[in-house]
């Protein structure tokens, strides 16, 4: 039960929790949070699994770095569009999602 394997499992649980929230909640901001945490979970698995019982591997770490930057770009874009949508419609959910 090395450190890498442990954190990879934590990553898997994080993904599951985030996916569950993504499906249940329709509030757009909460979904952005869920998306970010799911991304972190995937990155944990990427590095943890690659380094499990092997030497530290710079390649997955570089990939995760790129992933974090891409995630922040996507989150920023989502936030900007959401705030513009909120300004115009005053609502925090998309139309069909409401009960």
């Amino acid at each position: 039960m090395t450190t890498d394997f442990w954190f990879a499992c934590i990553g898997a649980v994080l993904i599951a929790m985030a996916l569950f929230t993504f499906i249940r909640h329709t509030h757009l901001l909460r979904r952005i949070l869920a998306f970010n945490i799911m991304g972190s979970g995937v990155f944990l698995i990427l590095v943890g699994l690659a380094q499990h019982q092997r030497q530290t591997d710079p390649v997955p770490q570089a990939l995760v770095l790129t992933g974090i930057v891409v995630a922040v770009a996507a989150t920023a874009l989502a936030l900007i569009i959401f705030r513009r949508f909120y300004q115009l419609s005053g609502r925090t959910e998309l139309d069909e999602d409401q009960q």
Binding site: T3, D4, F7, F43, V47, G48, Q51, T56, Q61, V64, L65, I68
Partner: peptide
């Protein structure tokens, strides 16, 4: 840091 990835 625990996963020996200081950059990250």
């Amino acid at each position: 840091v625990r996963l020996e990835a200081p950059d990250l």
